[in-house]
Amino acid sequence: MRLFLPIVAGLGFLFLYVPIASLVIFSFNESKLVTVWGGFSTKWYGELFRDPQIIDAFQISLTIAAISATLAVALGTLAALVLVRFGPFWGRPVLSGMTTAPLVMPEVITGLSLLLLFVSMERLVGWPAGRGMLTIIIAHTVFCMAYVAVVVQSRLVDMDDSLEEAAMDLGARRVRVFFDITLPVIAPALISGWLLAFTLSLDDLVVASFVSGPGSSTLPMVIFSKVRLGVSPDVNALASLIILVVALGIGLAALAMRKRR
């Protein structure tokens, strides 16, 4: 009975970390066959950095993620402000529904509907011309905005209304109040919203596949197409690198949190 908890915890950790560990281990595999151990080697890491397709895709993905996360934070915050602060107004239920719809909508539907929109817009107004990074950024902004709006909304609801009133009482006009008080108070939500949006965008395969065009393949799309042709060990190397970056990021965030406290 005394061993029950350690055993359960151990199994949990195994379940979570064995796949990751095996991926990291096999990224140092000499053999070209993913499932057969052929001795230690770092050659796939070298291979990875010599593969222009992957480097390009990585850059494209980072750019798209950074831009769409930023746009999503701006739009999502505005939507959250309107939904929390403006009380009941005409069209509020529709706005509220539309803001949260991408959260529950299957990605395939989001992707398809955006593709249809882009195609018919191109036909009608000529913009956006063709599919590419721009359309992916727009599409990612759309569904990331929903997540940001939810995160920021909950922070705004928790915020004491009298903080803003106090600032106004002390002589600040509305815009001033927003930048001096509201924004700093909800800043943690904006940061976590941005990070969430960034991750979601980096992670997305389905929506991007619908709205991308030639020369704008994102990293998940490249990985997916590579794997379809048979898993190659350089994908393992890439995945290991991503895990390293994520782990470092989480470690730094934890350190920063501890310091703040």
Partner: peptide
């Protein structure tokens, strides 16, 4: 409110 010659001390202190 921002132009009134009044100030307020809030219950929550704010």
């Amino acid at each position: 409110p921002f132009a009134r010659p009044t100030n307020m001390m809030f219950q929550s202190y704010a």
